[in-house]
């Protein structure tokens, strides 16, 4: 099967399907991730998108960044719309109304459109077993509406609705583990990814596309505007997220865990937190506590991926 080694940078398709000229902020990690995902998906795909940054930056009428068929309906229903696309294509092929060919069906949403308002539709789609790939572009807040917290915002992070005040210091809850929620649905393929590791990401998209049934990929997408970093630090921050253990890269293929980007020794979490304005209020002790939690989770994941 495919593995990371199948892809070398030069073997990534040159063709762009998410055209430049979109209106994302400079250094947007989501836009970069979308671009990479679409490269791997190629031309024979239909994309259903949720409302959010990527939808807004790519589709201001009468312009579009999409060189593949793309539909946006609302915020919480990308998985359901994609389910309809999949069923529609299936029945039309069966009835001979369109020609027989493989057309991948992909749903895309931000962390809000996935882990919060879109969770029900996503769970329904995974449970019903639609043959589709759902990609969550996780920038850890509702960025499109001005950086409000989501259930995917990490503990301690400052957002406009998890402010830093005298009584509260940023997000009070821990990041919801969407990948594990997807795994719990018993679907054939689940992975985490980050565009700072483009070949790893590409291999996972390929696997998700090839999986027979629902696949879920959760992509950490660095957001310079929302995280308070400069636009040229995106790639570096993604690497630090992975190298510190804050966002481990792994996949779960038919229930089997595998860390795809192993880290011999985790970097101090501080390296990852320090450049970001959203964590600037955290004391050394707080960061230390969060780091403990991160390391514990990393160990658990390691155990699971060595399990069998």
């Amino acid at each position: 099967m495919h593995s990371t080694s199948v892809y070398a940078v030069k073997t990534l398709p040159r063709k762009e399907y998410f055209a430049s000229g979109h209106r994302a902020c400079p250094g947007c990690g989501e836009a970069l991730a979308v671009r990479l995902v679409q490269k791997v998906l190629g031309r024979n795909v239909v994309v259903a998108a949720a409302t959010g940054c990527m939808e807004i930056v790519s589709s201001p009428f009468p312009q579009t960044s999409w060189e593949v068929p793309w539909i946006h309906v609302a915020f919480e229903n990308a998985a359901a719309v994609a389910g309809g696309v999949e069923k529609g294509l299936e029945v039309l092929k069966r009835k001979g109304k369109i020609k027989e060919q493989k057309i991948s069906v992909v749903a895309m949403a931000g962390d809000g459109g996935t882990a919060d308002i879109g969770l029900q539709a996503l769970s329904g789609a995974m449970e019903r077993g639609h043959d589709m790939l759902f990609v969550c572009y996780d920038n850890e807040a509702y960025m499109n509406t001005g950086v409000q917290r989501s259930s995917s915002t990490p503990f301690g992070a400052l957002t406009t609705t998890s402010p830093v005040g005298t009584q509260q210091k940023g997000q009070l809850t821990h990041k919801k583990n969407m990948a594990e929620i997807a795994v719990a649905h018993g679907i054939p393929y689940v992975a985490t990814a980050c565009p700072s590791y483009p070949l790893d990401l590409a291999a996972k998209v390929q696997k998700g596309m090839d999986a027979d049934g629902p696949a879920y990929i959760h992509i950490l997408s660095v957001c310079p505007s929302g995280w308070g970093i400069s636009g040229d630090a995106t790639i570096k921050l993604g690497r630090l997220a992975v190298q510190s253990g804050a966002f481990p890269l792994y996949e779960v293929e038919n229930g089997k865990y595998k860390i795809t980007v192993d880290v011999e020794e985790l970097l101090p979490l501080e390296y990852y937190f320090k450049p970001q304005r959203r964590f600037r209020h955290l004391s050394k002790e707080m960061t230390g506590q969060i780091e403990e939690n991160v390391r514990q989770k990393w160990q658990e994941l390691k155990k699971r991926s060595e399990g069998d």
């Binding site: 239909v46 259903a48 539909i71 309906v73 609302a74 229903n77 998985a79 359901a80 719309v81 994609a82 389910g83 309809g84 696309v85 999949e86 069923k87 529609g88 294509l89 029945v91 039309l92 109304k97 369109i98 029900q120 539709a121 329904g124």
Partner: peptide
């Protein structure tokens, strides 16, 4: 989701 799904299927021509 029922109507969302119908919108998706209708959009591909079903």
């Amino acid at each position: 989701s029922a109507l969302s799904l119908c919108m998706g299927s209708q959009a591909v021509g079903a």
